[in-house]
Design a protein around this nucleic acid. Structure first.
Lengths: 186, 186
DNA sequence: TCGTTACTGACACGACTGTTTCAGTAGCTC
DNA sequence: GAGCTACTGAAACAGTCGTGTCAGTAACGA
């Protein structure tokens, strides 16, 4: 299937160059293809972007699925999962993917129509679902439980934004760990 | 001064339409001007974007300056300021500005050259500075103090991302308040 | 009145955009 | 061999982009 291998090439290209000002001719040349072929396979540029965003989401879901999703890790399960997620987010090799992800997020806020669609809302829900699975059953469906996983997600994402902008791994990691240790005690 | 009033018009236009695919002709037509004039006043499109980003940053700094920045509100000063900041971030009328802000942030991560420059890093530092001023003097320059304000910033920004994507004011606000109340006790 | 400064309109230039048209080629099935 | 499917190259289309050129107006101080 030519489509999947070209998508993969385009994906690594997008990771390097971003999606915002990507255009067909430079992309095609870089991956050894032609605008004609890309249009043939993906119908339109919008279709290509949609495919790239879906591809990025696969990486994201794959990460999330690696978090232990069996239930009842105890009352502290949420923090355990969060700590694991952070170590993934903070890893050097994931910067490009996460930057692309922020880009897609921002874009889907600005224009919810278009290929970006509901990317932002989707990822929030993906993450909240995984975090919910790590909470004790009794807590999961309470308002306090929703707030708690919302808070954990906020900490992870806020710290990620900070890390991507400043590159200060030590400070952001200390902050995240401080939080996860603190709630552990409560 | 024609420049400032046109900048203001362009700014409100950018708040509605985003910066990413803004182009001179539609913008000029919308604000009753011409590409010629915009180029005359701002030298280039890049100059215009730089001016718009600077304008957005003014709104941001104005917000931050409204947070009480006199020192020693007590050990809980950081939370007091954070709560005030959140009520501003969560206000309905600020959605457009904050979305624009996220867009600029994302873009400055993708391409740190160009008009976006150090927008992301700058805002992180702006906020951290304000939060630092709200911490007790004794805590301010310790590693734990840095981590604490980093964490507060992460919560605010993470919750903001969530709010912008989902519009769920109740859940995000509950999460933020839970956090600020929790650390208050510690 | 002259010169200077601030601003503006009309138009064209070259580069680039996504997309289409037309014309294929290679491989597989019947 | 015929026909079908999958894929591809070359070139052109219409449109938009940022920008430059040339000209011109209005206000104002000397």
């Amino acid at each position: 299937m030519r489509e999947t291998e070209l998508l993969e090439l385009a994906y690594t290209y997008a990771l390097e160059h971003g999606l915002a000002d990507m255009s067909l001719r430079p992309l095609a040349k870089a991956i050894g293809s032609s605008p004609r072929v890309l249009l043939y396979l993906f119908d339109s540029k919008e279709g290509l972007i949609r495919a790239l965003l879906a591809r990025a989401r696969i990486d994201e879901l794959e990460l999330l699925s690696r978090a232990p999703n069996f239930t009842d890790l105890g009352p502290d399960g949420l923090n355990i999962v969060a700590e694991r997620l952070w170590s993934w987010l903070a890893a050097d090799g994931h910067r490009a993917l996460l930057t692309l992800w922020v880009e897609g997020y921002a874009r889907s806020l600005v224009d919810p129509e278009g290929p970006w669609g509901t990317f932002a809302r989707d990822t929030v829900n993906d993450w909240l679902k995984v975090l919910a699975a790590a909470q004790p059953r009794a807590e999961r469906n309470t308002s306090a439980g929703r707030a708690r996983r919302t808070l954990v997600l906020a900490v992870l994402r806020g710290a990620l934004l900070d890390l991507l902008a400043t590159g200060d791994l030590a400070r952001t990691t200390t902050a995240v760990h401080a939080q996860l240790r603190r709630t552990q005690r409560s």
